[in-house]
Each structure stands twice: as C-alpha cells, then as structure tokens.
Design a binder for these strands. Structure first.
Lengths: 209, 209
DNA sequence: TAAAACTAAACAAACGTTTAATTAAATTTA
DNA sequence: TAAATTTAATTAAACGTTTGTTTAGTTTTA
C-alpha cells in the first residue's frame, strides 16, 4: 500500500501512541491532534481505528523481518560467526524499532484474535524458520551440538532483549543512569546485550570452553 | 488491607480482565458483571478504577516476591544448587501467577508513572537484591566466576520466562500443541524452561563444562 | 466542472462516577 | 428480649465526558 505524506504522518504518530499508551489508551483525537489533521481524516483515510492499527503494523513490520538469505549461503563465515551476526541484527532491530516492538508485545498480551495478531504469528514463523536453517547448517558442519531446543533458544534471544527494553527505567535506576540521554543509553544496552547474548549462545550451541 | 468475600471476588475478576484486556480495555461494568455485583460497588469499595488496580496489585504482589532468606543461610546446598532452586521458583511463580505477571508487563510498557509502577520497581529491586546475595555467596566460595553481569543475567531469566508466556499461541502452533489443555501445556513449558535455564546459568556462572 | 481533500458539527454509544433511595445488619435503648 | 435507632450494604438511575464514526458542507486540486 502506498501512502501520501499526511497518511505516513498519521501512521508514525499512531505507532508512537499505540506503543506507549496502548490501543485502547489512545484516542483517535490524540492521534489527529499530534499529527495536525482533522479527526475525520483518520476514518476518511483508513476506515477505522482498527484499520489504522493494521496499517501501522503492515507499514512497519517489514523492518522487523530478518534478512538472512545471503547469510545462509555465505561460505566465508563460520556458523558461530553467522549466529553472532544474527544476534546483533536482533538487538539492533529491537532497540531501533522499539515502538513497533512494544506494540507487538502488547498485542501478544491480549487473547483476542485480530488480523494484526495473525500477522505477528506469520512474522515470527518466518524469522524462526530463518534461524532454524542457520542452526541446522552449523549442526551439519559438526560445529553445533545435536540437541538444541531452538524454541527455547529463541525465547532467550527475544526474551532477553525484550526484558531489557521493558525494564529500562529499573535498569537506569539500579545503575545510576537516570540522567543519561536516550541515545547514549541505547548504545550502552546494545553493547551489553551483544556481549551477553554471544557468550550465552556460544555455550548453548558449541562444545568449546 | 483486609477484604471481604465480595471485595476479593472483585479483585480476582479485575486481575484476570486487566491481564487479558488491559486497564483501558476493561470497563468497570465488565468487572461488575462478571463479579456479579452492582457497578456502583466498585467505587463504593475501592474509590475508583485506578484504586482498584492498586488494590489488585497490592493484594497479589506478595505471591511474586522471592523467598530466599533461608536459602542464603543454608549450608547444606552448593551455590549452583541454590541457583537451580531459584530458577525453579521463578519459573513456577511466573507460570502460576500468569495474570499478575501479564499485568506487570503491561504496566512496564506504559511510560506513565503511577503508584503501581512504583510498586513494580520496588518488587524488582528486592528480588534483584536477593539474587545478588546468592551470586556473591557463590563467588566468595570460589564456585562462580568473578565477572558476572547480574542485570543481564536477570534479564535472561525473567525475559526467557516472559517470552514463553507471551508467545504461547505461537509455540503451540509450531509444536502442534493447539489442542493441549492449559494445565498440560503449562507443565510441558515448566519442564522445558527449567532444563534450558539451568543449562544456561551453569554455563554463565561456573567454569565447568 | 468533476473528483478529491478537508472541515466543523453532530451522532449515538460507552465510559467512570455520583446521587438518592432502599434494604440489611449491627448497635443501642427501654 | 423487643423495639428503636444508627450504620453499612446495595440498588437503579442519572450525570457529565469522552469515545469512534458519520454527515453535510466547503475548499482545493485535477
């Protein structure tokens, strides 16, 4: 779907507000005011608030899709190097697309089946499949262990990153980083997560010390 | 605070609805209807919808508090055994108090400062302190490594469990468990999580293979 | 001049909360 | 103990806002 400037403005604002206040906690008037458009424009352009949410999701979700196609075919890198790259891509994406990530979490918390929740399942299924191929490749080459619980592994990858995003205020308080700017803090967490997760996955996947 | 039967009924229903539909997605009429009381009773007993949320949190939060006081003083168990017990307690608590856990996640997703968000910070601070003492004890005894990032470690512990709770529908679909009962599925995930996290933490904390 | 973009106003429904009246329980008085 | 009185529990209805959406009219663009 192609959107004009005003439509993308609405989508951008909606993403932020849905992320921070939730779907029910955000009114179409909030969105319209912040986007600088008339309330009626949202129904006019998107049909309804629900449809706007779907538009937000469809328009932003491609940025959350892993790009590992060429990674798999690459013959220069070792399997563990590929996993390291994958970890950094996940960390990068989740911190970069924080608002979208939070919308996904919110959506998964509810039990209602919506078009959006179907899109989330599809997105996760595709990403899981990419990772599975990377792992199997490493196993075929004899570098990775045989008994790897990929679902749990993904749970740890996504879960750890999500948790650090979620508990940002707590982390700042504990580490005396309350005054640190958002960019600096994000860079700090990015490094910490990268080191931590690589250590974890090396132990989980390989037999090396 | 002491509550009578009708009040605890309201709190129980509210916990479930807030968990599944969110604070803004749940109306006081929904709660009143499901609890079988008049709408006005909620204001009468709790003052407001916000205050009801606080009551839910205060009344349920003690079940999420770690009980490690005697664990620390115990001299029979090895440090790693204590960590294993801690992991099982976390897994148990999070799966058992799923609704409360989801409310906590939801609350952490919003950036508004409420009395509830303050209570969450305090709960997390206390739990972190308990774990920190367990780790330091193991380090003093020379069993655990020196350079352990406790915040990241906790992020992985809580994050992994949270993620498995969150992505339950996805997990069921991937593993063909869509028809499995809630109890059976919970038991399945409990075991998987326990094994996975213990493996992870052993690698993270000790130098053993 | 026809189509698209945009606006202010109005719409009914749902929201959290309050009110005023009634019933039930507890306490005091005779 | 029985009646009288006070307090607490409960109700249906109403309150004023806010909600998402629609309408009918106006301005802009093609």
């Amino acid at each position: 779907m192609e959107y004009n400037d005003k439509q993308t403005a609405i989508i951008d604002i909606a993403e932020r507000l849905f992320s921070v206040s939730g779907f029910d906690g955000t009114s179409v008037r909030d969105i319209a005011n912040e986007a600088g458009v008339n309330v009626a424009m949202i129904s006019y352009y998107f049909g309804s608030k629900e449809k706007l949410m779907e538009a937000v999701f469809e328009h932003k979700s491609n940025k959350m899709r892993l790009k590992v196609e060429n990674l798999i075919q690459d013959t220069e890198m070792t399997p563990i190097q590929k996993i390291y790259l994958l970890i950094d891509e996940y960390v990068e994406k989740f911190l970069d697309q924080k608002n979208f990530h939070m919308i996904m979490m919110r959506e998964q918390l509810t039990d209602k089946r919506t078009p959006v929740s179907e899109l989330i399942l599809e997105l996760k299924r595709r990403n899981l499949e990419s990772v599975r191929m990377l792992i199997h490749d490493g196993q075929k080459k004899g570098v990775f262990k045989k008994n790897i619980d990929i679902s749990m592994m993904m749970g740890t990858l996504i879960g750890t990153v999500s948790q650090m995003v979620l508990s940002q205020p707590f982390y700042r308080k504990v580490h005396g980083m309350e005054e640190l700017g958002e960019q600096e803090f994000r860079s700090h967490i990015r490094k910490k997560l990268s080191i931590h997760l690589k250590k974890l996955f090396k132990a989980l996947l390989t037999n090396e010390a």
